[in-house]
Design a protein around this nucleic acid. Structure first.
Lengths: 136, 136
DNA sequence: GAATTAATTCGTAATCATTATTATTTACAA
DNA sequence: TTGTAAATAATAATGATTACGAATTAATTC
C-alpha cells in the first residue's frame, strides 16, 4: 500500500494528520516484513525522542483497525506490517531470521468450509515460518 | 492422547513422575480445548495451594517439547492442549467463546510447497477462529 | 490569522504474563 | 536408607502492553 493511500483513508475517516502518524507510515513503507512494536518504538525515538508508548500502540491499533496495517503475533510479541492491497486476500511465508515475508497466493479456507457446517467462522490464520533463501 | 501414554513417554526419557505432572496431565485429559497457562495455574492451586509459576511453565514447556501437549498463542497468551495422536497431522477450528476445538483433517502445506522453492520451511500454523454450533 | 475545540500526544505509572533465582524438598536408584 | 540429581516452592525481576491525567496540536470557524 502507498503512503498516500493510507493518509487519504485516514483523512476520509476524520482522523488528524500528525507528524507521528506520517512517520509511522513511513517506517512501514517498502518493508516486506513484520516489525515488532518495540522496534517501531526504537526507530520512532530517533525522530521523536520523547514519544510515548501510548502513541505507538494507539496508532498501531488504529492503523490495523483501518486495515492499513496487518498484525500478527510472533514469539509472544505483536508484529505489524503494511497491508498489501495490490492483490487479493492471501497469506505469508515469514522468515524467522530476518522477518521478511513472501506472499502465498493460496487460501485454504475454500477447502475446509464443507467440514464446518454450523460453525460461525470469524477469522483464520495461515502462516508459514522458516528461512528465506537469503538466510538459509 | 491417554494419560498413561504420556506418563510412559516421560518415564522413557527419564523424567520423574511427580504429583504435579500427574495432576497437570489430568487437567488436560478429555479436554478438547486450548487452556491458558494462567487457567492451568488456577486449577492447579485447588490441589497444590503453594504451586509456583516455575512449576507450571517448566512443565508446560517440557510436555510441549515431548509432544504431549500442543501450544498456540491466543490473544497474547500461551495456550495448551493435549496432543491428539490418534490421527495424523491436522489443524483446528478454535471457538473464541468457549475455547473448544474441532479437528480439521486438511493441511494446506501440500498446496504451497511449489511456490516456496529455495525456502527452508520450519513450521506452519493454520487455525480457524469463530463460534462453534453451541456458542453461535 | 486568531480563537475554539476535540483529537492527539506526552510523561509516567500500573498491570499482567512470563522468566529467573535460590533454597528446600522429593523421586528414584544404588 | 542413603545419596544425588531432578523437581518444586517462594519470591523477585523482567518486559511488553495498557492506562490515565495534563499538556499540546491539527483542523474548523469566525
Amino acid at each position: 500500500m502507498k503512503m498516500e493511500t493510507a493518509l487519504e483513508r485516514l483523512r476520509e475517516k476524520g482522523y488528524k494528520r500528525t507528524k507521528q502518524r506520517e512517520r509511522m507510515l513511513e517506517i512501514f513503507t517498502n518493508q516486506d516484513q513484520y516489525i515488532a512494536a518495540k522496534d517501531i518504538l526504537k526507530t520512532f525515538q530517533e525522530d521523536f525522542p520523547g514519544v510515548s508508548y501510548d502513541t505507538i500502540y494507539r496508532n498501531l491499533y488504529l492503523l490495523t483497525d483501518e486495515e492499513i496495517l496487518e498484525a500478527t503475533e510472533l514469539g509472544g510479541e505483536k508484529h505489524f506490517r503494511l497491508s498489501c492491497d495490490t492483490h487479493g486476500h492471501h497469506h505469508h511465508f515469514i522468515c524467522t531470521a530476518c522477518g521478511k515475508t513472501k506472499s502465498i497466493e493460496f487460501c485454504p479456507m475454500d477447502k475446509v468450509q464443507d467440514n464446518l457446517q454450523g460453525y460461525d467462522i470469524e477469522n483464520h490464520k495461515f502462516e508459514i515460518y522458516g528461512k528465506c533463501p537469503a538466510c538459509s
